[in-house]
Amino acid sequence: MKASYNALLITVMSTLLAHTTYAQTCNSQIKKVVPDTRYQIIEGSNGSEVKDIKTGLIWQRCSVGQMWANNQCYGTPQSYTWSEALQKTKALGNGYRLPNVKELQTLVEEACVSPAINETIFPTTAINDYWSSSPKTSDNRYAWSVNFEEGTVNSASIYYKTAKKFNVRAVRNSN
């Protein structure tokens, strides 16, 4: 009886910890590199898409797996292996795809952490790694990701590329 209680307690605690939300911290001494004014809401998207005026890219405001409603992202961002992420974003249609590492880096807000992104434009972004479509040039067994806890760029190993699941944000080119 005690063993099943302990197993239940561990399951409950793990679930609570996995869904812990963090308050974003920003340094007012650092000028924001991705302010709200850099983005334009796409007409006809109900606010679910924004255009980055600097790059011309159109981003989904929610992570894949979440739903946009009432100016907010609802639900839990889903995690995918690298190949699943490539397939999932393409399956969204409308020209959506997995961003390359340089494109994904343009979302990093250097003045903030937990998450290191503009939370007004991209609410409830997970403070996890997000896949890019970029394999590492020197060894294509690796793929690049961006971690939005601190905005760091990481190279995930083949183990991670094929087995580890990261979050995904979809992008498309403007028409």
Rank of each mutant, 00 (worst) to 15 (best):
L92W: 13
N100P: 15
I127D: 01
L98W: 15
K102L: 14
S83P: 07
A116Y: 01
K102C: 10
G93H: 14
Y130C: 06
T124Q: 05
W131L: 08
T137H: 05
C73K: 11
L104H: 09
S114V: 02
T76H: 10
A116I: 04
Y74R: 10
Y74D: 04
T76V: 14
W68C: 07
D129R: 14
R61D: 00
V101K: 08
T81P: 13
S133H: 11
C62F: 09
V108D: 04
Y130T: 06
T89W: 11
S132M: 04
P115Y: 00
K136L: 08
N128V: 14
C62Y: 09
T76A: 08
S133L: 09
A85P: 12
Y142K: 11
P77H: 03
V101R: 07
I127Q: 07
A126H: 05
E109F: 03
Q87K: 15
S83I: 12
I127R: 10
S114H: 08
T76M: 11
N94T: 14
V108S: 06
Q72K: 15
W131F: 09
Y142C: 06
G65S: 02
M67D: 04
S114A: 05
S138G: 09
S133K: 12
A111F: 02
Q66K: 09
W59Q: 04
S79G: 05
K90F: 09
G75V: 12
E110W: 01
T120L: 03
T137V: 13
R61E: 02
N100Y: 15
K54D: 10
C73A: 06
G93C: 11
Q72D: 10
R97Q: 11
Y130S: 05
W82T: 02
D129M: 12
L104N: 05
S138P: 01
E103S: 13
N118P: 03
E84Q: 15
V113R: 01
T125H: 05
I58C: 05
K90D: 08
K102N: 15
D139N: 12
S132H: 04
C73Q: 09
N140K: 13
R97D: 07
L104T: 12
